[in-house]
């Protein structure tokens, strides 16, 4: 039971990261390779706010969200729009990777190389749940992730903004003809992804410790989850994230911790070989759908 909740809790953060990567890639076709660094920055900035400025968890998180939103918007304006050529899909890959390296090193200089203890929500309070001791924080991770997923899905499916996001994703030029400012929609997606990145980073930091290496230890798993679930597929992001979290949690019972982190990538490679469009593309999930309805 403990492993189950632990797996789901970590998985929910992977899911959040995959969701944020999907928010951007489904509207623009851009895979934000600097996303993992923004997750790390989210964690580090909230740690800083708590330690240096003595803010409590929630206000610190809001500062981190604001910083991450700004970071993502700046990255879009510079790495994608100014430097990266959208027609030729090489520009932004390089510039976003570069941004990731810059962010990591800024974090290293600002916050030091030492991993920092990060406080839990509710002061690390434990609850007994089906006879297992579970940290309230872990339950909050799952809840927050699911709430964000549901809210995002609802916005995309039901609102005027969501219709416009889907329209821009499908036909940017035709969307302009409808009077939609594609540019503004894309910026909002980058901003949303930044906010979600910060939340994910701050939620998982108590478990992993806050450090500039989170980019690779945690952030990359967001990509693994995104590949598992299929890029840009909201439900897929959650399924991918949870599967990854659970597999990791249970496998770590049997294998040393060092190997654990490689598991997600082994899974990712297997999925890419057999189901290049993610597990949601498997026949099992699409029995009753016509081809056009697969989103």
């Amino acid at each position: 039971m403990q492993q189950l909740i632990f797996g789901l809790a970590n998985g929910s953060i992977y899911a959040l990261m995959a969701l944020a990567i999907g928010m951007v890639s489904s509207t623009t076709g851009i895979v934000n390779f600097a996303h993992a660094s923004v997750v790390m920055m989210g964690a580090m900035v909230s740690w800083w706010m708590m330690v240096i400025y003595g803010l409590s968890y929630i206000p610190a998180l809001f500062v981190a969200i604001a910083v991450s939103i700004v970071l993502n918007i700046v990255m879009y304006e510079t790495c994608v729009k100014k430097l990266g050529d959208l027609q030729d899909n090489v520009g932004w890959i390089i510039t976003l990777f570069g941004a990731s390296i810059i962010l990591d090193n800024i974090a290293r200089m600002l916050f030091g190389t030492e991993p920092q203890a990060f406080p839990y929500l509710f002061g690390g309070k434990m609850v007994t749940f089906f006879g297992a001791n579970i940290m309230l924080h872990e339950l909050m991770m799952i809840t927050i992730a699911v709430v964000i997923g549901v809210v995002y899905q609802t916005i995309i499916k039901k609102t005027r903004f969501g219709r416009a996001v889907r329209a821009v994703a499908f036909r940017p030029a035709t969307s302009e003809l409808m009077g939609i400012k594609s540019e503004k929609i894309i910026l909002s997606c980058f901003a949303m992804a930044g906010a979600v990145a910060a939340i994910g980073g701050a939620l998982i930091a108590p478990i992993t410790f806050a450090s500039y290496t989170m980019t690779y230890s945690i952030g990359l798993k967001g990509f693994a989850a995104a590949v598992l679930g299929g890029f840009g597929n909201t439900k897929g992001a959650f399924i991918g994230g949870f599967i990854l979290g659970l597999i990791e949690a249970f496998i770590s019972i049997f294998v040393p911790a060092g190997i654990k982190d490689s598991i997600s990538f082994v899974i990712m490679i297997i999925v890419i070989i057999f189901l290049p469009e993610g597990i949601m593309s498997a026949k099992f999930f699409n029995r009753n759908l016509s081809a056009a309805e697969k989103v």
């Binding site: 329209a167 003809l177 009077g179 056009a292």
Partner: peptide, 26 residues
Amino acid sequence: IRLVPEGRQIFAEHTVEENMLLGAYV
């Protein structure tokens, strides 16, 4: 001023009603 583009370019994954609502976006 409205343009009906070449090849219709409707939003194939939006419902008919959503297409109309997008038309009224402004």
